[in-house]
């Protein structure tokens, strides 16, 4: 299965039905919480919570697996490198020359790695359950200028097209004897030049044509108020959901900064 350009999974679920603005708020709130909390267990709990939400939204397991697969190399790097630079802690596990690895530094590295995946999954809650057009519509409703929203929509819309072009260009150059797997790292990177240049040329041509196509359909002609065929309206549930997210986030932040909740690595209560 290909996950290369569009993450949206078209299903019927309560998560899919929620207004994109409420989901943007949820994603932002989860990110803020994940960044403020230092406690390993709470961050793990946030991750579990996000997974439960995604399961309830009927997101297939292989999509989770794909996200984990993408993030694992970064997480491994963090777990391995963190203890080398974060040298505090008293429970020394390894001490050899300038290397001093403590249990606390390993656990902090692990917390940081889980935090990164929580940040990633917080985004995927939105991307897996909201189609691109609705995300853009949500942003425009929140005050992002229409032109910016449209530009973003076009950029997202053209991702699959460009993915197709890149594959086509790779095929075209391989058919001319280009071997992308030959030689060392530098040789391999250099062999991507023909692909990069051809894709950029095609991209420039496409953007030029697209700009003309937009102008010929009178884009930018009027200053009148835009109307929408599919207008977004916050339902009672959306409002209640957003309020719950806001209150929950406020409570966590007050608890964190006023009562030191979750600022210890392992202990839940300071």
């Amino acid at each position: 299965m290909s996950f290369s350009y569009d993450f949206y999974i078209n299903r019927k679920s309560w998560m899919h039905d929620i207004d994109p603005r409420a989901k943007l708020l949820l994603s932002a709130a989860l990110m803020v919480i994940a960044l403020c909390i230092e406690n390993l267990w709470i961050i793990a709990a946030i991750l579990v919570g996000i997974h439960l939400m995604l399961v309830s939204a009927h997101v297939p397991i292989d999509r989770f697996a794909w996200v984990w697969k993408m993030m694992t190399p970064v997480m491994i790097m963090i777990v391995l490198l963190w203890p080398l630079f974060y040298r505090t802690g008293s429970t020394v596990l390894i001490e050899a020359g300038f290397i001093r690895v403590t249990l606390e530094s390993v656990l902090t590295g692990l917390t940081m790695a889980l935090r990164i995946s929580a940040l990633g999954f917080a985004c995927f809650i939105l991307l897996f359950t909201t189609d691109q057009a609705r995300i853009i519509r949500g942003l425009v409703k929140m005050g992002v200028p229409y032109n910016v929203g449209l530009t973003l929509a076009i950029a997202l819309r053209y991702l699959p097209t460009f993915y197709g072009i890149i594959n086509m260009v790779i095929d075209a150059q391989r058919a001319r004897g280009l071997d992308l797997k030959k030689g060392g790292l530098i040789a391999r990177l250099t062999s991507y030049m023909p692909i990069l240049v051809a894709v950029i040329i095609t991209g420039l041509r496409t953007s030029d044509n697209l700009a003309h196509a937009l102008e010929t359909r009178a884009f930018g002609a009027g200053e009148g108020k835009r109307t929408y065929l599919h207008d977004l309206k916050m339902s009672g549930f959306d409002i209640a959901f957003s309020a719950a997210v806001a209150v929950f986030t406020a409570v966590v932040l007050v608890a964190r900064f006023r009562y030191h909740f979750g600022d210890e690595l392992l202990a839940l209560v300071a």
């Binding site: 072009i165 260009v169 058919a175 051809a198």
Partner: peptide, 13 residues
């Protein structure tokens, strides 16, 4: 040899 439909997918030099 394979010549693709769109020459732009090929030319880069």
């Amino acid at each position: 040899g394979f010549v693709f439909q769109n020459p732009d997918h090929q030319v880069f030099c």
